[in-house]
Structure formats: structure tokens, C-alpha cells
Amino acid sequence: MMLSMRKKIVFYVLLIISALLLAGPAIMAIVMSFMTNQDILTGRLPTAFTIDNYIAAFDRLPLLQFLFNSLIVSIVIMLGQLILSSLAAYAFVFLEFKGRDFLFYLFIATMMVPFEASVIPNFHIIRDLNWIDTYAGLTVPFFATTFGTFLLRQNFKQIPKELREASLIAGMGDFKFFLTVVLPVSRTSLVTLGIYGFLTSWNMYLWPLLASTNDTVRTIQIGLKQLQTQEQLNQWGVIMAGAVIVIIPTLILLFLGQKKLQKGLTEGAVK
């Protein structure tokens, strides 16, 4: 598209303003994490550069432990979601059984139940299973995901039926076909769902708060909150330092997977 110079300038000014609006808080957080407490509270421009806040953040709480917990929880949820939803999606697409479509619509309908509504029953279950303060309690309730199943189902549907039939003639069972054909063919969607699952579980707050009572399995998001409330006077620099540490994995994943994420999400949305 060719733009005249004036239009270009207007466009870029607008773009810069909106970029600042969007990224402003994040930039502020990053800048604040390197400022002294004095500078922050007086609202001045930074006069000194310091990494004391980071040292303090790691000092005050077992941040590394929290990060590790978050990593474990996120990876386990991601894998669990990938396995369960790809298997479920396979069944919805390639296996024929009575009431399949009805079951699928019922499945989709559960998307309308907000997570908050199922928190209490879920909590009862993991309490009865003695799963409080365990990784299992933090992860298992999220394995079944309607969204993931739906996304993969749409993707699997685009695989021609003839591929399944050709494999039937070649004498290939369902599971082998699933592993050697379906999964490799829909790599993009699997990566998308994986990143999506990882990020959502990384950013989860409510459930880890309920399901953990001590530091052993607590995730980083809860840790961050703890930084804030431990003292009367908030040390904003320290909190911001913690926040920056938390968003680093998110950013890395987003930068690496942005293309695939976009492609996968829109692929499912077309049909």
C-alpha cells in the first residue's frame, strides 16, 4: 500500500501513541524495578540505577521455588491438555458411535459454565482426594479442556477421510494412525494449544491460591501477591522486580511462538 507522506506521519504518530498506551504500564514496571524506593515514592525521574530490588525480591521470598513450581504446574497442565484433548478430538472426528454429535454439543455447552462456578465442587474433590498442597491438585482439574478439544477437532476435521481409509486398507489401527498421521499433520494446532495452555496456567491465580496452603507447591503468581502484602508500606520497586521476573517466560514463549500461535488460532476459526 502506498501512502502519502502526510498520511504516513499521521499513521505513525497514532501508532506510537497507542503503542505507548498499551506498553506503557509494562515499561513503567520495568523502569521502576531498577529505581530506588525514594525515587519511586517521590515520583521523580530515576536518578540512580540499582538492582537492589531484584536482590530484595529473591531474598524475601523463595522466588526460585515459586518459579520452579509454576514451571512444573504449567508444563504438566500443558501436556495433560494436549494428550486429553487430542484423544478426545480424535474420537469426535474419526470414531463413529451413537450420539457422537449430541455428546459433542453437550461438551461445547460446558464452555458456558464459568470456571468460578466450578471452583467449589473442584475444591471439594481435591480436598477429599487429599490433593491439597500437591502438584496433582494444582494440575489435574485443568486437563480436560473444551476449548482445546474444540480447536483440535476443527483441525482434525480438515484431514481428508480418505487418509483414514487408506490406512485402514494398509492395516493400521486407530492408535497408530493417530500417532503417525493425525498428530504430525496437525502440528501447528498442537503447538498453538500447547503455548496457550502453558500461558494460561502460568498466569493462573485463583485456583493455586485455593489449592495451596504453603510454599512447597505455591506458584509464582501467588508469590508475587505475597510480596505486596507482607508490609504496611509497599515497596513498589521490589514488587515490580518480581513482576518482571514473572513475565519473562511469557515473553520468551510469545516471541518464539507468535507466528505459530496466530496461524493455529485462525486456522481453527475459519470453519
Partner: peptide
């Protein structure tokens, strides 16, 4: 099942992986 009928099949869209 198809695999035990000892036959091969060519499809309209070729069914290539």
C-alpha cells in the same frame, strides 16, 4: 476388515500423507 482382504485402493484425491 479391509486389511485382510488383500487389496489396494486408489482414491480420487489420492490420499497421500
Amino acid at each position: 476388515p479391509p486389511k485382510d482382504r488383500n487389496l489396494s485402493m486408489v482414491f480420487q484425491n489420492y490420499a497421500l500423507y
